[in-house]
Every structure is written in structure tokens, then in C-alpha cells.
Design a protein around this nucleic acid. Structure first.
Length: 557
RNA sequence: GCCCCAGUAGUUCAAUGGACAGAACAAAUCCCUUCUAAGGAUUAAAUGGGGGUUCGAUUCCUCCCUGGGGCACCA
């Protein structure tokens, strides 16, 4: 990357290792800018020092291949001596870069040879995924694609709660109502959701029901009985239904992990380490997180049933045994942040080799205008429902079914991804559908526009592009294109797909400004060739970027 | 009570310790006999409050205020 090249040159000129090279927001500040002079000035005059560094760097032959102007700048007013060194890339170099843009553009080898397992989605069986799950699916898949582009080898994992009280509540209501089983998978899943809600309500209101549900819960764990059989059957409905939905979202897991396959061994691990890592307390087995500035948690209840905590002890071991990862990421809503701090501490004590390899990403909660959504209270819009509603709305102005699906899902995905993932997302249904401004449809529309132009131009997209002096709108696009690989690498490093969104929006709006002001086809042969190359490269980068976000790029809109 | 996280235009969000704090939506005015107007151009508006560190703070430290999350047998 050109960025690395410049950094190396600065290091050479200053003998300073820690170089900050940023891409200024303002075009007049160059393509790259460094504050190194201020950083190392000490009691010297940073301005003079910057001049000296710039002078040395202007003589750097390797650098002069890509950089044609090095300038010292900063508001020179009074004593506030700001001294930035700004770099401008050569226009010939930028034009030459256009030919490097292909379908793999954006890939880097920053994390080549590294393996990561990424757990996301994590919807529970016997109820429907809520909007938080939808966020997890979307964020996880985007993050994975971005990490793959940065060189990571990724294993996609889902962990589903398919056993426990929530399931027993559903089975209780199911057995009580003995409902007619519907044909379609979607209706079956809907039925389970209804049963779950009914059971959950009765559980909270009636002591007797509570006892019955607890009994069912135990029976399912024991196996070979009526409830166990019902559990197996209904569980499969959920699993099949989720697979269908995941496919629609473009997700293909390498492995599903289930609570039912880890609870037994999880309990054994905890019990085997009582007195070493865990401790008996009031009949339960706990981990004393408070000894490590965390908090105490129960791992196995006084009744002897393993809690989530215990299950995680074996789950992570199982994951590592199947995929020897350098990094194991679990992404959940941030309400579990402190839970995972305790869990990781316990795991690291159990397996010192895991230290530094466990990472929890606690993403923000999705809030509707009406407040937090939970799967408990009913009458709340679910994850799948949300996608359906948005797609239906898109159909009102785009009748093509396939395109409406791509645009609708793209709108939801983009609106979830464009913000800092660690902060709460406020989701306004109407606004997300409006599809204006910084939105998925805007990027898709711009892509479709590039394709339309290229299509109309016919085959003559490759011609001479040299000796072309770009105008300011062309230059704005030209200077933005080569930032893409840097952005993807930064997004991977910071677990922040929003960086990719922001970049795509910036590129798209620069292209649209250019498009509105200048004709591309029939603008004189040299100019036309150059503009078509610029259009093709922009389209390619938009398509690559959308792909990383898990969003489709229709040719027409 | 204790522990985390966050507080930026009317609203939703940006800003690896740096150059006039960027957008979008909403509001106002323009631009389709021209390659997709789901587009483009122009205009108004913000760092919760007090201290501190620094040449320089939205960013780091500290106190206060406000909001969200978590804290023993749920997942």
C-alpha cells in the first residue's frame, strides 16, 4: 500500500518509529498528512523541523515515484506553531492505479496465516429471533468478510440455546394445547413462538405451572420420554427455519453448537475443579470473580444443574479442539460484557494457553422508538418480521422481486452497520425505509448507475487513459479510490464495519458529484476513455465494498 | 449500594491527541429536450457542567449531572 511506503520514508527521514499518517478530510491538506514534526519537536521549533524533514524527503527517489508534492502546512498564526507535513500523490500514479482495481481489490495480507473462530447469530430454538439477533447476524457476517479480506482464515460458528427453561415453557404450552401442526416451516416456527409466549406468561403468574415447567425441563435433560421426543421434533423445526433465514441473509455457518451438547461436560469440568478454581457456596458452585476485580457468579446451581457459565467452560474447549484458532471471538449484545469478563478469567485459569486468545465484542442494543425490545413480552416486532416489512415497502417502488429483496435487505443491513457497533442503534422503521442519504440503497443506486453507463458505452472501456489531466471532480474520485484497501484493513483491526460504510458513502457521493457535472460517454475520446475507466473502477470498488458488508449489488434499480 | 458503558446541530450519527468539529434527515432555494432525479448544488445549526495533563483535548485523567447496562442459583 502507498500508505506504508510513505510511512517508511518518514521513518527513514526522522528515525522515529511511531509514525502517524492520516488521510486528511480536507482535500487541500493533501492525500496524506503527518504530525511527526510536532511529535518529536520537544523544545525545538516544529515548523523548522518540519521543513527540514520535508527537504530530506523531497530527495527520496523511491518516494518520488508516487509522491509529487511535499508541503509543510498548518495555521501559522502567532505562536501556535502547528506543523503538518502534507503529501500529494502523483496524478499519473493515481491514474495508473485504476488498472489495479479488480474484484479482489481491497484484500490485504495484514493477518495472513491467522485463524479466527467467530461466534455470532446465536438465536435460541423454540422462539423467534429478535432484532438483537438480527443485528448479530448482520454485524458478524460483515465483520467476518472484512476479516477475510484482511487475510484471516475464518470459521463461522453459531451457538444456540436449544435446552433449558425457555424450551420447557414452550413444551408445556404445546402439550397443554396440543395444537394442529401446520405445514410450512414458517408457520411451525410461529407456532413455537406463540407457545413459548403462553408458557412464559403462565410460568410467571402461576406457581403450579412453574413446578410443571421445571419438571419438563428436567425430563428433557434426562432423555427417552414423551417430552424429550417432542423436544427433538420441535427443535428441528427451529433449526431448519433458521437455516432458511440465514441463507436469505447470505450466511453459511461452518458449525452449529448447541447447549444440549455441552451442558453435561461443562458441569463435569466445573465439578472437577471445585477447590481449585471454583468454590462451593450455599450449595451452589461459584467462581469468585471478586478476587480479580470482577464479580462472583454461580456456575452450577445448588440443584446441580449447569448454568450458562458452566456450559461455556466446555463450549470454548470444544471450539478450540475443532479449530485451533489464534483468536476466538464471541459477539453478543453488550449486556453480557461483564459476564464474559468473568467467563474468560475462569477459562484462562482452566487453560492458561487461552490467555490473550479470547475476545468478546459487546455490540450495542437495537432500540425502536418505543423502547427496548425483548422476546418475552410479545407484540414486539421480530428480526425476520422486520426484514419482511422493509422488503415489502421497497416493492412499492420497485416491482422486481429479486431487486426488492436485495434492496430491502441491503437497507436493513446498512442501517445496522453504518454506526459504531459498540453503541446502541436507534432503529426507526420509517427512516430506514426512506432510503435517502447515507443508506444502503444510495450505494446500490450509485453502483447501478455506474453499470448502466458502462453498459451504454459498450465494450470500449479500455483505451488510453494516460496523459489525462483530471479535473477537480475526477480528481476527487481518483484520490478516494486507493484508500479502499487501507479502510478495509482498519475496519478489520477495529472490528468496525462502519468504516467501510463511511468510505463507500464518501466515494459514492464524490462519484455522483462528478456524474452530475460531466458527461462520461461522448465527451471526446481521450476524456471518455478516462472517465469510463474511472466509472468502472468506482463501480468495482462499490461492489467489493458492498460484498464485504454482505449486501448485494444489483445491476439495475 | 457497587461495577461497566455512553452523553456532539431539532433528530440520527462521524471525527487513529492535531489544521475552520464532518455528514445525513427534517427546513428553504435552485438543477431533468443530456449517460438511472432512489441524483446533484447552495443556505442555517452542536462538543452536558467544573477542574486538570499537553505546544494542542470531542478524544486522556478527575469530580458532578443525565441516560443505558450489569451485579448468586435466568439465558
Amino acid at each position: 500500500m502507498t500508505k506504508d511506503k510513505i510511512i517508511k520514508a518518514i521513518q527513514k527521514a526522522t528515525e522515529e518509529k511511531d509514525i502517524h499518517l492520516e488521510s486528511p478530510e480536507i482535500a487541500e491538506h493533501g492525500d496524506y498528512s503527518t504530525n511527526v514534526a510536532m511529535q518529536i519537536a520537544g523544545n525545538k521549533n516544529p515548523r523548522e523541523l518540519a521543513e527540514k524533514i520535508a527537504k530530506t524527503m523531497r530527495l527520496d527517489r523511491d518516494l518520488s515515484v508516487v509522491v509529487n508534492k511535499i508541503e509543510v502546512a498548518g495555521s501559522a498564526e502567532g505562536e501556535t506553531s502547528r506543523a503538518f507535513i502534507n503529501f500529494w500523490l502523483k496524478e499519473e500514479f493515481l491514474v495508473g492505479e485504476l488498472s489495479d482495481v479488480n474484484h479482489t481489490y481491497g484484500k490485504t495480507s495484514s493477518f495472513k496465516g491467522k485463524k479466527v473462530m467467530f461466534e455470532y447469530g446465536d438465536a435460541n430454538t423454540h422462539k423467534l429471533p429478535h432484532i438483537g439477533h438480527l443485528f448479530s447476524y448482520i454485524y458478524g457476517e460483515a465483520m467476518i468478510r472484512i476479516m477475510e479480506a484482511a487475510g484471516w482464515e475464518v470459521y463461522r460458528a453459531s451457538y444456540q440455546g436449544d435446552i433449558g427453561p425457555h424450551v420447557a415453557k414452550c413444551l408445556w404450552a404445546f402439550e397443554k394445547n396440543k395444537p394442529q401442526v401446520p405445514e410450512s416451516l414458517a408457520d411451525k416456527a410461529q407456532l413455537l413462538q406463540k407457545m413459548y409466549q403462553e408458557g412464559s406468561k403462565a410460568y410467571d403468574e402461576n406457581e403450579k405451572v412453574k413446578e410443571e415447567v421445571n419438571k419438563i425441563n428436567k425430563l428433557v435433560y434426562e432423555g427417552s420420554n414423551k417430552y424429550y421426543d417432542l423436544w427433538k421434533q420441535t427443535r428441528q423445526w427451529s433449526i431448519d427455519y433458521y437455516k432458511q433465514f440465514e441463507k436469505r441473509l447470505g450466511i453459511n455457518y461452518d458449525r452449529y453448537y448447541f447447549e444440549s451438547e455441552v451442558h453435561e461436560k461443562g458441569r463435569e469440568i466445573v465439578e472437577a475443579n471445585v477447590g481449585k478454581i471454583f468454590k462451593k457456596s450455599e450449595g451452589a458452585i461459584i467462581f469468585e470473580g471478586s478476587k480479580y476485580d470482577l464479580h462472583d457468579r454461580v456456575f452450577v446451581t445448588s440443584a446441580g444443574t449447569p448454568m450458562y457459565e458452566a456450559k461455556d467452560m466446555y463450549l470454548q474447549e470444544l471450539k478450540f479442539s475443532q479449530w485451533p484458532a489464534d483468536l476466538l471471538i464471541i459477539s453478543t449484545a453488550h449486556e453480557q460484557n461483564e459476564y464474559f469478563k468473568v467467563i474468560f478469567k475462569a477459562l484462562e485459569m482452566l487453560h492458561p494457553k487461552y490467555t490473550g486468545k479470547l475476545k468478546h465484542i459487546g455490540f450495542g442494543m437495537v432500540n425502536l422508538k418505543s423502547g427496548k425490545m425483548s422476546s418475552r413480552t410479545g407484540n414486539i416486532i421480530g428480526g425476520i418480521e422486520l426484514v419482511d416489512i422493509v422488503v415489502e415497502r421497497v416493492k412499492k417502488f420497485n416491482q422486481d422481486k429479486k431487486t426488492a429483496e436485495a434492496v430491502g435487505i441491503g437497507a436493513v443491513k446498512y442501517s445496522f452497520l453504518k454506526n459504531n457497533p459498540l453503541q446502541d442503534t436507534k432503529f426507526d422503521l420509517e427512516e430506514s425505509i426512506a432510503a435517502e442519504g447515507n443508506s444502503g440503497p444510495y450505494i446500490q443506486y450509485t453502483y447501478a448507475r455506474t453499470q448502466s453507463v458502462l453498459h451504454k458505452a459498450g465494450k470500449q472501456t479500455s483505451g488510453k487513459t494516460e496523459n489525462q489531466k483530471p479535473n477537480s471532480e475526477e480528481l476527487a474520485v481518483l484520490r478516494t479510490l486507493p484508500k479502499f484497501p487501507e479502510i478495509v484493513a482498519a475496519a478489520a483491526e477495529n472490528y468496525a464495519p462502519n468504516l467501510v460504510c463511511n468510505y463507500l458513502y464518501d466515494l459514492a457521493s464524490k462519484f455522483n458529484t462528478f456524474y452530475n457535472k460531466h458527461r462520461i460517454i461522448h465527451s471526446g475520446s481521450v476524456s471518455s476513455n478516462f472517465r469510463l475507466a474511472l466509472t468502472a473502477a468506482t463501480g468495482q470498488v462499490l461492489a467489493n465494498g458492498l460484498k464485504l458488508l454482505g449486501i448485494q449489488a444489483p445491476e439495475k434499480m
